[in-house]
Design a protein around this nucleic acid. Structure first.
Lengths: 170, 170
DNA sequence: ACTGGATACTTGAACTCTCAATCTCTATGC
DNA sequence: GCATAGAGATTGAGAGTTCAAGTATCCAGT
């Protein structure tokens, strides 16, 4: 090799002032909102927001059960994180594990009656918090625009290509 | 008291299908994006996204320093979280603490030259990641709408009233 | 069958964050 | 001047997350 194949090292395209404002508004809202919901659910239901989301997924699934990887994918988290989370929810008696008959490596996370119960009691307060923080403050048009934008971002971060760095395959 | 002052307990206003879609798109994008940025910065700069944000705040502040509470407010986090974070950044040599002369209870977090240096090296990769995940995928109109919506949400979560539950006053 | 490589999931350690308690110092009222 | 409430910040313990490594199983090719 004659010389190092260094990258071009162009001046990075910094954010414009307008973009800065957008980005900071986004980060501030996202940080505050997650903190707000975590706190509300920790207080009223004894679990963080992510864990609540897991129970919701299970409640909606047929036979109230989901394979670990599928659940991780629905929640957009890693399997490792899910393993720890399910262990905790199992201790609470809200979820139970079951072996998969068709694949001995597989595990189902199953929502228990106690879990269903807890979910039912937590849900109203949670919806109220989400409404108050987001939907009650935005017009339908703003909601639509927000949803559209976030959907595009979400899809961009989980490309279909093989070899993509998806949390639940990590 | 004659009877318990029970709440009305009306049927909660559940999210409509449309609202559900918006909410899930939001949560998915927010989760994936934070994971993505954390990972990128952990790999390229050895710190999580929040810590990077702290360095940015300090870099922009006069004399590259900020009082702890003020920094916590800018980052929308608790003082406790900030204390731990600054302790870690101090170990890395990127930040140093200084006493406040006018208020002996106060502390300044000061960005060191090493911190500035680290920041400078991490910034291009970070901006690129943010662009790729968000700005490159949205039209200017969508960016504007997203920013507007998130600004409203952020402001709703930090009311001016006394006694509001703000993370940095917790 | 058998073997190598992928898939499904778990584990433990290091790191981060939360919560409640603590400490010091400031400001207020008497 | 002095007591006391509040403000600024930190601490330690427990809970949650990440990362790298581990176990067990499945599958494709031979």
């Amino acid at each position: 090799m004659e010389y190092m194949n260094t990258a071009p090292a162009e001046e990075p395209r910094w954010l414009t002032d307008e973009e800065q404002r957008t980005w900071r508004a986004y980060m501030h809202a996202a940080t505050l909102l997650e903190d707000h919901l975590d706190r509300q659910l920790q207080r009223d239901a004894g679990m963080p927001h992510v864990y609540y989301g897991l129970l919701v997924q299970l409640a909606e699934a047929p036979r109230r059960r989901l394979r670990m990887t599928e659940l991780a994918m629905n929640a957009k988290i890693t399997r490792s994180r899910l393993s720890h989370a399910i262990a905790r929810l199992e201790k609470n008696g809200w979820v139970r594990r079951e072996d998969c008959p068709s694949d001995k490596r597989g595990q189902f996370a199953v929502l228990t009656d106690a879990g269903q119960e807890t979910l039912g009691k937590a849900a109203p307060g949670h919806v109220a918090a989400v409404r108050q923080a987001m939907f009650d403050r935005l017009t339908p048009e703003q909601q639509k625009a927000l949803g559209d934008a976030m959907l595009i971002i979400a899809e961009g971060l989980q490309p279909k290509e093989a070899g993509a760095d998806l949390p639940w395959l990590r």
